[in-house]
Write a protein that binds this DNA or RNA. Structure first.
Lengths: 221, 221
DNA sequence: TATATCCTTACGGCATTCCGTAATACAAAA
DNA sequence: TTTTGTATTACGGAATGCCGTAAGGATATA
């Protein structure tokens, strides 16, 4: 079994829950951090001391508070870690169930496991740890389709940006302006209209209000 | 200190984290459930056996899964418990920070504590337990204003209904129809317009889309 | 080079929303 | 009963959104 594991998770209770589980698995050295910057620091330190971490279990979202942080999100943390410590195993432990998100985490960072925080989250986590210890990738059932099928609607970053601006109360005209100012293309009012129309159809929404409500429910924005 | 405590929380990891904390506080008998129905059952059983629970720590939202549940939410559970077991102490432990929600929980059910799940959630929880053991109410800082100020906008059930229909993609005309069919008043198109305009101003929203996005963020719908 | 295809942009008509003003209905107070 | 205040409804003009059609531009294929 792994000997040295780091938990990066801002919520104290979950942190503790995971800790207890790792203890039960017989992992000897378990460290916890509640901030991404601390995670990177600890991992660098351990490496320098010749006793590197073997596994990191990290959340994706970290609430910001009074402490200034260089690394704002779990995704940023993973990006840095996979670059500086290619051999370090990483499990994402998150409430996020967006297939698209999981797929991008896998393809961009080649994470070793993705476990959804659910009722049985800890059980899944132990399964993931066991699998990864045998050098196998593990995805909890909710997202395992991320590897196989291509069921997802093709929603790209531009769409997300568009929907975000729309939800912030900008008119289509204002969004057009915004896109021009930010060098994003397409930026014409007509294109904005067309794109939003496509999204409305994709999401079976009656109008823009319905569209925004829907994508918010899906957690896309 | 309390001797017998029940934790009702669907997420395994949080459940475990809270459990560990309670152990450290020296509470002797700690029970956990992941479903509301189980909570009620356990509490009834304990009462019948002459060894009732003294304190319940419960979440508000329970994800539904394959198991059929009579009690769907923490709020429903609390409603039942405070009716059947008036002496039972209840702490809500939730990620929900809506002042309005907290206030309604206090006034409707007279809950003994409300702790927000945050970085320092468990610390707050131990404070809450200590306070409640001394028969004092405890609210974590994020929501403590719920007791004092009256900052809240007056949003009634009609507004919620209105916003809900709007978010479902109905046009103002259709909402007017809907209100007439359901004997809700006011129901004229003009009144719908006026009310939505008021809500837009209250929530400082640029347009209807922005309004719906905002109230969804606030968890009002 | 020519042709096809896709993407972006432009325009126009119609529907809905936005917003101010005013009339009507209802209920409490004089 | 009359008065007064509030809530509901009605209406009209301006702005925005919705939707189809079509022109212009870039890239790929023959």
């Amino acid at each position: 079994m792994f000997k040295k594991v780091l938990i990066a998770e801002d919520m104290q209770d979950i942190n503790k829950g995971v800790h207890t589980t790792l203890c039960e698995l017989g992992i000897q050295e378990i460290h916890e951090v509640q901030y991404c910057d601390d995670a990177l620091l600890k991992i660098k330190k351990a490496q320098a001391d010749g006793a590197p971490f073997e596994l990191v279990i990290t959340d994706l979202s970290f609430k910001s508070d009074w402490r200034e942080q260089n690394i704002q999100s779990g995704e940023d943390l993973i990006s840095v870690l996979k670059k500086e410590f290619p051999n370090l195993k990483i499990i994402v432990y998150s409430i996020e169930v967006r297939i698209q998100k999981v797929r991008s985490m896998i393809s961009n960072y080649n994470i070793n496991g993705y476990v959804c925080k659910t009722r049985r989250g800890l059980l899944e986590l132990t399964k993931a740890i066991a699998a990864i210890y045998k050098n196998k990738q593990y995805l909890s059932p909710e997202v395992s389709q991320a590897l196989s099928t291509k069921n997802t609607l093709e929603i790209d970053d531009y769409d997300i940006l568009l929907l975000t601006q729309l939800s912030k109360g900008l008119s289509q005209e204002e969004i057009s302006q915004y896109m021009k100012e930010n060098q994003k293309t397409p930026s014409s009012l007509s294109s904005i209209e067309k794109r939003l129309n496509k999204l409305r159809i994709d999401f079976k929404a009656n109008n823009a209000i319905h569209l925004v409500a829907t994508v918010k429910d899906l957690g896309l924005i």
